[in-house]
Every structure is written in structure tokens, then in C-alpha cells.
Amino acid sequence: MAGSVFGDRLPLARRFAEHLVTSGVERGLIGPREAPRVWDRHVLNCALVAELVPDGARLVDVGSGAGLPGIPLALARPDLGIVLIEPLARRVEWLREVIADLGLSVTVERGRAEETVVRRRWEGADVVTARAVAPLARLAGWSLPLLRPGGILLAMKGATAQAEIERDAAAVRRFGGGVPRIERAGVGVIDPPSTVVVIERVREAGKPDRPRRRRGQA
């Protein structure tokens, strides 16, 4: 199962899991109670989102924390160009140490997605990912400006995904997003599969939809 996800990088994925349950716990990136389920709940769960990511995509992971989902995606999909955005210095230091140990070509940016300098540096991405970062409305405001038109936000969510969509759809629209939809990644591989809210950037924030032309109108 894991071999089909990570291929010949499976040993590196296991090494990443070991980092999470040792130094990741010691330095407060994940809670000690998560250690026994780190493989299925964190590493594999995140890597399976790769099936929603286009080939060769430029991907920005917002609020990366312990490198989730960015590092598992980098391990599963070496074709991706990945940037991890994380504001906390101690987490950035840990991420850079782990990336160096795994020999991955992944960039770590210390900052917040909503900061102008960060946005200008990394805007035009094909995909933005986020896991347990913020409610959907706030996350859309931070993430959609980083995307090119037609790019997609992949927000990993839990059981509240549908409720968040219903509550925040209007805010998502104001920030330039299309109609959010739910995708399940890893069906038949993990139980339950990963729940991902997918939002396409369809226009600039604050701009209204183009009015539909009437028949016969030039």
C-alpha cells in the first residue's frame, strides 16, 4: 500500500515519520498522543492528496507546521516544486533540518501567507495546500491570492468540511474562489480517506462575476 504511494522513496517517508515521533514531539510540532498513529493519520493521509495535484505543479503549503502535507507530498511526487510557508522560527528550523536530512529539494519560507512580501514572492502557484490552519473563509483570504487564475486550493479538513462550506461559501466567493467542493483522497487505501475541500481561483478578490450576455447581445 505505502509502496504504491511513495515508490522508491518509501524509506525516506519512514524516516520522516521517525523525525515526527522523535524530534517533532520533543520540539512541540506534534503532540505525544499522535506518535502511535503518525503514519496513517499524518504521513500517508497527507501523501494521498497527491492524486489531486496536477503533474509538475508549483505548490505552496500554507502554515506548514510539521511539514504536513508538504513534505509527504514532496516524497510522493518528486515532480512538484514545493514551498513551505511557516511563521514560527522554531518550526522553520526543524523543517530545514528534516528537509536537509531527507535530501529533498523543498524551499522553506519563514512568514505568513497574508504578508505582502511573501505573497509577491510566491504568487502564481498552481496549487496551495493547507491542513488544520484556519476556518475556510480566513484560509481562502490568505491562500487564493497566491494562486494563478485557474489554480486550486486544497484544504485538508475533517468531519466539519461540509458545514464549513455552507457557512463560508460567500466569503470564498468574495476572495475570488469558485464553488467549493469536497473530494476524498485515498479511497480504498486508507479508512477513512482524506477529506479535501477544493476551491478554484476564478477571479481577483472583490471583482464581481461577469454578467451573462443575453441572446443576440454582441
Rank of each mutant, 00 (worst) to 15 (best):
Gly178His: 10
Ala89Thr: 12
Val179Asp: 14
Val108Cys: 02
Ala137Trp: 05
Trp94Arg: 13
Pro78Asp: 05
Val127Trp: 11
Val128Asn: 04
Arg174Cys: 06
Glu123Met: 12
Ile165Arg: 09
Pro87His: 12
Thr129Cys: 08
Val106Glu: 09
Ile71Trp: 05
Pro78Val: 07
Leu154Val: 09
Gly177Asp: 07
Pro69Cys: 02
Arg110Ser: 10
Leu73Glu: 06
Thr160Arg: 15
Leu146Ile: 09
Glu109Asp: 02
Ala125Leu: 05
Gly63Met: 10
Ile99Glu: 09
Pro192Trp: 11
Asp61Gln: 06
Ser105Cys: 01
Leu59Ile: 06
Ile190Glu: 10
Ser105Glu: 15
Ile152Trp: 14
Gly70Cys: 08
Ala171Asn: 00
Phe175Gln: 13
Val62Leu: 14
Glu97Cys: 06
Ile199Asn: 03
Val133His: 09
Met156Phe: 12
Phe175Tyr: 15
Ser64Val: 09
Ser105Ala: 15
Trp94Lys: 01
Leu102Asp: 08
Gly103His: 04
Ala161Trp: 03
Leu154Pro: 11
Trp142Tyr: 15
Arg110Ile: 09
Ile82Cys: 01
Leu68Asn: 00
Arg131Leu: 02
Pro149His: 10
Phe175Pro: 00
Ile85Cys: 13
Val62Gly: 05
Ala89Val: 11
Arg91Ile: 06
Gly177Leu: 07
Leu68Gln: 03
Val92Asp: 13
Leu136Pro: 01
Pro180Cys: 10
Thr129Trp: 13
Val83Asp: 12
Ala170Phe: 01
Ile82Tyr: 01
Leu102Ile: 11
Glu86Gln: 04
Lys157Asp: 14
Leu139Cys: 09
Ala169Phe: 04
Leu154Gly: 10
Val189Asp: 12
Ile82Leu: 14
Gly81Lys: 13
Arg201Glu: 03
Leu75Gly: 12
Ser143Asp: 13
Arg167Asp: 12
Ile199Lys: 01
Ala159Tyr: 03
Pro192Glu: 12
Ala76Thr: 05
Ala130Asp: 14
Pro193Ala: 13
Ala76His: 09
Gly151Gln: 07
Arg184Thr: 08
Ser194Phe: 04
Ala113Leu: 10
Gly141Met: 08
Leu88Thr: 11
Val106Tyr: 02
Val197Asp: 12
Gly103Pro: 06
Ser105Val: 05
Leu136Gln: 07
Asp79Val: 10
Ala140Tyr: 11
Arg119Phe: 11
Val172His: 02
Ala161Met: 04
Val60Tyr: 04
Arg131Gln: 04
Leu80Gln: 05
Gly111Tyr: 10
Ile152Gln: 14
Thr129Ile: 07
Leu139Glu: 13
Asp168Trp: 15
Ala170Met: 02
Val133Pro: 06
Leu139Phe: 14
Leu144Asp: 05
Arg184Asp: 07
Leu136Ile: 11
Leu73Val: 06
Leu68Ala: 00
Val198Gly: 08
Ala134Ser: 15
Ala137Phe: 10
Arg174Phe: 08
Thr107Cys: 04
Val179Thr: 15
Glu97Asn: 03
Arg121Thr: 13
Ala66Tyr: 09
Arg96Gln: 15
Gly150Asp: 13
Ile190Lys: 02
Ala100Met: 00
Arg138Glu: 15
Val187Phe: 01
Pro87Ser: 14
Thr195Asn: 05
Gly158Arg: 03
Ser64Ile: 08
Leu139Met: 12
Thr160Asn: 14
Thr116Val: 12
Gly67Tyr: 12
Glu123Cys: 08
Thr160Phe: 02
Trp94Thr: 05
Ile182Ala: 11
